[in-house]
Simulated scan of single mutants.
Amino acid sequence: MANEPEKAEVELPSVRAFVAWFGAARLMGELRGGDVSTYVKTKTDGSPEQVEPLRAFLAYCSRLAFTPENLVPALGVGPSAGGARGGHGANAELGGAAFYVTLDGLRHIEDQLAMEKAKRPAIAQKLHDAMADKDFRENAPLDAARDEQGQLEARIRDLESRLRNAVIIDEQAKGGRANVGSTVKLVNLDTNREQTFTLVSATEVDPSKGKISIQSPVGVAVMNCGEGEEVTVNAPSGPVKFRIVMVQG
């Protein structure tokens, strides 16, 4: 797997080509969704190799407010892609590097990262104390400290990766369709029973508060669908049909 510098070296030509097409002298604030869509349709073959670098670039510009809105949906990939139905957008998101999240979810990840990094000094001290024993052949405390350090650094890398690839869902871009942060009410077409939940990223799931993942069977089924549409949820017991009666947010 390529490391970050190697990945950047591979992706940079795609970003440069897009900037050259748009106009290097123009301001990013002038960029609109129509420009992005036109470029993807006329200058790329729509493959992940060509589109993914643009997604990462546009997500970065959105997070830093270089663009007036989140332009990632204009690429036609991910859960905000126009025309997606019945979870196809969610499946695209699962197959790409983009990490779609609400603003609260992003702040939660930032808090988690800060807490994990704060653990580094304590583990470093454990390593120092364990290494004071010169016999490294049978040093259980040293092995335990190294394992703990490895697990901590893995969690930190995961959280940092999520922040790098985070795309905050634009509420106005949803167009009344279910997406991350939406509250959705469904009615079971067999039992007439209603249920309400909020779609969130995997890191924000909280069943006690009715927050379910966009990667869950229900989440995948309703992504990008609007009120009145019927969806099929692939439940463990078999397919279950629902009608969406409300989408908020």
Score class of each variant (00 low, 15 high):
M1G: 15
P5Y: 01
A8I: 08
E9Q: 10
E11V: 01
P13C: 00
S14E: 12
S14T: 05
V15Q: 08
V15G: 06
F18H: 03
W21L: 00
A24T: 01
A24R: 09
A24S: 08
A24H: 05
R26E: 12
L27Q: 14
M28V: 05
E30N: 04
R32Q: 13
R32M: 08
V36K: 01
S37M: 03
T38F: 07
Y39F: 09
Y39L: 03
T42S: 14
T44R: 09
D45T: 13
D45A: 13
S47Y: 02
P48K: 01
P48A: 00
E49W: 07
E49I: 03
E49M: 10
V51D: 05
V51P: 04
P53K: 02
P53L: 02
P53D: 07
F57V: 00
L58C: 12
L58R: 12
Y60Q: 15
Y60I: 01
Y60M: 15
R63P: 07
R63E: 15
F66E: 15
T67Q: 06
P68Y: 00
E69V: 08
N70P: 05
L75H: 08
L75W: 03
G78F: 01
G78S: 04
P79T: 00
G82S: 14
G82H: 12
A92F: 05
L94T: 02
G95I: 09
A98W: 02
T102I: 00
L103H: 14
G105A: 01
L106Y: 13
R107I: 13
R107S: 14
H108T: 12
E110W: 01
Q112Y: 09
L113N: 06
M115F: 12
E116G: 11
K117I: 00
K119S: 10
K119I: 03
K119V: 03
A122E: 14
A124P: 10
K126P: 02
L127I: 04
D135C: 07
F136Y: 15
R137C: 10
A140W: 07
A140I: 07
P141S: 09
D143L: 07
D143I: 05
D143K: 11
Q151S: 11
D158M: 10
D158K: 13
E160K: 04
E160N: 03
S161M: 08
R164L: 08
E171W: 07
A173S: 14
G175P: 08
G175W: 01
G175I: 00
A178C: 08
A178N: 09
V180R: 04
T183C: 07
K185M: 13
K185S: 14
L186G: 06
L186H: 09
D190K: 12
T191N: 10
N192K: 14
R193V: 06
R193T: 07
R193Q: 15
E194Q: 09
E194G: 03
E194T: 08
Q195K: 13
V200S: 04
S201N: 09
E204G: 04
P207Q: 05
K209E: 15
K209Y: 10
Q215W: 05
S216K: 00
S216P: 04
P217H: 11
P217R: 11
V220D: 12
M223Y: 08
E227T: 13
E229L: 00
E229Q: 06
E230K: 15
T232M: 11
V233L: 11
V233Q: 13
A235F: 03
A235Y: 06
P236L: 01
S237G: 14
S237F: 06
P239L: 00
F242D: 06
V245R: 10
V247G: 02
Q248T: 11
